[in-house]
Write a protein that binds this DNA or RNA. Structure first.
Lengths: 111, 111
DNA sequence: AATATTTGACGTACTTTTACGTCGATAATA
DNA sequence: TATTATCGACGTAAAAGTACGTCAAATATT
């Protein structure tokens, strides 16, 4: 009976995992890069850029929204999808920290 | 009938997603950080460090192995778990590239 | 007012992930 | 040789993720 045991880990670790999980699908990476190239915002149907159906892309967008990396503003009929600069900065920090922790070894002789 | 559509994306995007997905669970982040702190290798039962059962941790280890970030050498009864420096370097590059792409916007005025 | 466009929301089906227990092989120890 | 420790492999069950079609509301357009 698998229940989410994620909360047994440190908050910081959890948050990092949430961000990395959000990046764990090519469609979501593509959306993020596309938004970045569009100067962080795009109005219209993002699914037209991806090799996936609209409802599927919407689901990926939802996950990106849940992680906070993307925001959706409604303006008239169209929706503006934007990167959330604060969260993007946070993500960068997470990555930098991870790289910092992970590089501590090097020139060890154990394998 | 959802079939893996991941292959519809560019190879590089796919590979990046594989790495990020591997980092998308606190247990796996913890394992990686633990191995880094252990000078990249550890002999013994990693599950004793995590708040999860051994078989679950083994499954996470398998995923890390599949992504290539971790290697397992058998030496006698015990197994050596080691970071794979080449893949770790690759992961760092992926992160740097992602940060590079994503930061291109900034001081845009669209939201 | 009728029609068309856009987008979120919902349902569905299949796959993957997460979590655990247990078994069996292997190897060290008594 | 019998016992103990270690660890991969297997099965199982619940939860999440992936992918799509379709509907309905809201807003333009005709």
């Amino acid at each position: 009976m698998p229940s989410a045991k994620v909360e047994l880990f440190e908050t910081e670790l959890q948050q990092s995992a949430v961000y990395f999980k959000a990046l764990g699908h090519p469609a979501r990476l593509m959306i993020l890069e596309f938004l970045a190239e569009s100067d962080s915002c795009f109005t219209g149907d993002i699914s037209s850029i991806l090799p996936l159906g609209r409802s599927t892309v919407n689901q990926h967008l939802d996950e990106l929204k849940k992680s906070g990396l993307v925001q959706g503003h409604i303006s008239g009929i169209k929706t503006n999808y934007c990167l959330n600069p604060d969260k993007i900065d946070e993500l960068k920090l997470v990555m930098e920290k991870f790289v910092g922790v992970i590089k501590t070894y090097k020139d060890s002789n154990c394998c």
